[in-house]
Design a protein around this nucleic acid. Structure first.
Ligand SMILES: NC(=O)c1ccc[n+]([C@@H]2O[C@H](COP(=O)([O-])OP(=O)(O)OC[C@H]3O[C@@H](n4cnc5c(N)ncnc54)[C@H](O)[C@@H]3O)[C@@H](O)[C@H]2O)c1
Ligand SMILES: NC(=O)c1ccc[n+]([C@@H]2O[C@H](COP(=O)([O-])OP(=O)(O)OC[C@H]3O[C@@H](n4cnc5c(N)ncnc54)[C@H](O)[C@@H]3O)[C@@H](O)[C@H]2O)c1
Lengths: 214, 214
DNA sequence: AAGAATCTGTTCCAAATTTCACAAATTCCA
DNA sequence: TGGAATTTGTGAAATTTGGAACAGATTCTT
């Protein structure tokens, strides 16, 4: 994939995800071509922002016409590296882990949970959504065997570092941490934090202070 | 609460959430005082970033000393408007909705899910985590009765707009949308999108392109 | 076929955000 | 008590990000 520029802003990656979502809706509605202006409106961003975001990766539009919806979806997916499947390991099969396991959309979008790991002996052996829960100690073997690349941590926060250590030792390439705990990883491991409370805090802050401004 | 400045960057709000998380860990470990330098390291940010973020809301530190951990947690919480409880409505009690309902941490942090709504007749009447699922049509009555302020949408994406409409009609003040669909809301309603795929896309992108740079 | 209309890609400028650097405040210690 | 050692809060500099504007490419219209 040709990345034209060195560094791509985090915000651009976030917006590209939105573009895919909205473009998919357009496609479902039968829209074949879309202008940056129309896409911008649906995504609540500026149209030149969209054109600039896309320009990091190439030229995907046709002047005087716009963007072909399906083609643009494909191009963005290739740009993000999601034009192929990613094998994931889920560590911690509790409430949230189960919700993720049962969510069909993950595999549909190319993120396939191929291993479910827990350390609770009562859970090991249980089958959730056609997937047998195995002991965390089997991580190294399974990561190699199944080619797992992304680790998803849904353990309690105090166990997140240990789960990360297992994953890293097993040779995982990136980690998505749903537990509300900072964890330390070597520089070559990509780490994403998913903090639900962040969104609740932001909502509370804005509700409280946006319109009680007197 | 005294907000010193007009506009506060979204990124600042996000970081404040991280600061609370890390400070809580420090507190648990028995640390009473912390410098911006040490906090910065734990949060992987620049120390003057922290000082500037805090400066939006007031002066919470002591020169030559640092910040008193408990005091700073309290100050940040007050700054964000989470020094009180927020009553929430959960709309769509499926896999994800149940995970959220069962998650004790929400009420512990002051976000109390007081109403669970669904439109599936098979689910209405069921009790999850001590909460009876009621029909979405009861939203207006319940929002008033229970003083619900934040609506949490965990319906399928094609129902997200309808759920939002119910919530808005019922007089909710803000919405957190876990469904992967853009929704339209009036300007006075605060809206947060939670898109899990965003994190997976970002991970895929960085794993693929950070270290295959040749 | 020529001119009007449309819409992208890109350059240039403005605004916002982050980082640096240091004066001011506080503590510690001799 | 005074001077060294810390560490905050903040103004100024540097960097990053977003937006306006327009040349260049394409289609539409007559
Ligand atoms: N449930 C939610 O809606 C929700 C929302 C936001 C964040 N979270 C966070 O997600 C995480 C999981 O939440 P949950 O509600 O599913 O908790 P849970 O207690 O239901 O599940 C945690 C699971 O992790 C397993 N586990 C513990 N240590 C482990 C280890 N070292 N290796 C492998 N597995 C291990 C436990 O056996 C358990 O099955 C928590 O950190 C929580 O704070 C959950
Ligand atoms: N499960 C996950 O891990 C996960 C992860 C990311 C995103 N999401 C998103 O969260 C949403 C919920 O996912 P899920 O797995 O829980 O789906 P689900 O199908 O298990 O649950 C959806 C629930 O919403 C109810 N519902 C439908 N229309 C409604 C309406 N108008 N009013 C009230 N309730 C209504 C349904 O009856 C059902 O109980 C989806 O949009 C999904 O894409 C889920």
């Amino acid at each position: 994939m040709a990345v034209k520029s060195e560094h791509i802003p985090k915000a651009t990656i976030a917006r590209l995800a939105t573009y895919i979502q909205v473009l998919s809706e357009f496609k479902r509605e039968g829209t074949d071509v879309v202008s940056s202006e129309r896409l911008a409106e649906a995504c609540s961003v500026n149209s030149s922002q969209i054109r600039k975001d896309l320009a990091y990766f190439g030229e995907f539009g046709v002047r005087g016409v716009g963007y072909y919806v399906q083609e643009l979806i494909t191009s963005i997916k290739r740009s993000l590296g999601i034009d192929r499947a990613w094998n994931c390991a889920l560590v911690g099969v509790g409430n949230l882990g189960r919700a993720l396991l049962r969510h069909r959309e993950f595999s549909r979008k190319g993120f396939i949970i191929r291993g479910a790991f827990d350390c609770d002996p009562y859970k090991i052996g249980e089958v959730v959504e056609g997937m047998e829960i195995v002991c965390s100690r089997q991580l190294p073997a399974k990561v190699k065997e199944l080619g797992l690349e992304i680790g998803v941590i849904t353990t309690p926060p105090e166990r997140a570092q240990r789960a990360a250590n297992y994953l890293i030792g097993a040779g995982i390439k990136g980690i998505i941490n749903f537990a509300p705990a900072r964890i330390a990883v070597p520089k070559h491991i990509h780490l994403e934090y998913v903090d639900f409370f962040h969104y609740f805090y932001a909502a509370a802050f804005h509700i409280r202070f946006d319109d009680t401004r007197d």
